[in-house]
Design a protein around this nucleic acid. Structure first.
Lengths: 236, 236
DNA sequence: GTCTATACACAGATAGAC
DNA sequence: GTCTATCTGTGTATAGAC
């Protein structure tokens, strides 16, 4: 992971220095599911999983998972109906796989990003930036995951909620820690964390709007951090 | 409309003093669509529209509009399949109607709420509170509208986006006006408005979370306004 | 104005050839 | 490992009785 001594930590360095990329996402999908996937050649499977996932995101952005038919997916991915079903048992299974793979990918990256940091404010800034950079890198996944969470089966939906709250908890904990070291004002940190979370989510939910206005992810990160700092560093 | 000389403006007074309520929502739906609705007795129609809309919200919160079948809707609303189809021509038409009615209702209320106010900061606070109170009163509609916007036909989807941006524009304009009168710091008001919009949306998108934590809409309004004021009134 | 019964299109899923 | 052809259930929508 990058040594995030702050200023030089931007989206470009995140992509370069980090030990992961979009491709790892699909490789991880294969490794996690290779027992249920009928195709055994890793190279073939990873390539097709990428086609399937990307096609799913494209279609679902327009009409949602329930609105996507397997024939849509077949056309858009370039695989036949039969081929599709050798990568997952049912349509619902595809949804579960997508959610699970994304969540474990994100959890891993978020944990790695602050592993070497100790100073609370640096940690806070890094967490916020990393979350935004991640949601920039795999925006379609974040959007999809948010929009389709309600269609998950019970067990998988619980996982989703756990992951949601865990991000918020990470932020809350850092805020509490920073206040203890007198680096921040006294505030209701849990509430603040959920407001901050809302700002982070807006990035991947309204990606098109920000793109149209020429706001890059680095710019947006600066904006969020500015709001947080003004809120927490303001002197009366 | 209430004379919103601020402090006493809360959710209770919003409901009491305002010239509208949840019931008006359904009445408006009938008036707007009475030419396509085959049922001519207003009392019957309004009562059934309420059943249909409420059932739609309940089902779609769980499985989305595409996931809802007409049989689901028939069961949940207590009307037969045949009866349902005398209120709208197709399933898609139901979606369009819901979006349209909600949008015009909201537009009307938001315009009325600041009609008698001139002081920019009072206007700002009132706009923010009113938006939150509205999304509290018809939360299921806000949630539904946000989640299903992508399923709309072209024309109706354009309307949705227009309405979205219009809220943001109203906030931006007030911020610009307030800065001109030296009531606020110089900031990028359009960006600020979109951050504020994200906070407002979080209320209806994460209603359950806030309820679980005992945060009322009045409390949440105070929180949002605090963030905005700290951001805009802070002195260097 | 509301119901039941039904048409018929299209969805998810699979078998078996290549 | 991938394809085409096909089965079967379920979806939207309507006709016509009450």
């Amino acid at each position: 992971m990058p040594q995030n001594t702050d200023n030089q930590y931007n989206y470009q360095s995140f992509q370069k220095v980090a030990r992961f990329s979009k491709e790892d996402f699909y490789k991880q999908a294969f490794v996690e599911d290779c027992n249920t996937i009928r195709i055994k050649k890793e190279k073939v499977a990873v390539k097709n999983l990428e086609k399937i996932f990307e096609a799913t995101f494209r279609i679902c952005t327009r009409k949602g998972f329930q609105g996507m038919t397997m024939r849509d997916l077949s056309t858009e991915s370039g695989l036949s109906m039969g081929a599709l079903y050798s990568y997952f048992a049912t349509k619902e299974e595809l949804l579960n796989t997508l959610q699970r793979v994304g969540n474990s990918f994100i959890t891993r990256v978020m944990e790695e990003c602050v592993a070497e940091l100790t100073e609370p404010l640096a940690k806070l800034r890094t967490i916020l930036r990393t979350h935004l950079f991640l949601s920039e890198m795999i925006q379609p996944w974040f959007f999809f995951s948010y929009m389709e969470a309600k269609n998950l089966a019970k067990k998988e939906r619980e996982n989703y909620i756990k992951a949601e709250l865990s991000t918020e908890k990470v932020i809350t904990d850092i805020l509490v820690e920073a206040e203890k070291e007198n680096l921040l004002r006294t505030r209701n940190h849990q509430i603040a964390a959920s407001i901050i979370k809302a700002m982070l989510q807006d990035w991947y939910l309204k990606r098109g709007k920000y793109a149209k206005r020429g706001i890059t992810v680095d710019k947006y990160a600066d904006i969020v951090i500015e709001w947080v700092e003004v809120y927490y560093l303001q002197t009366d």
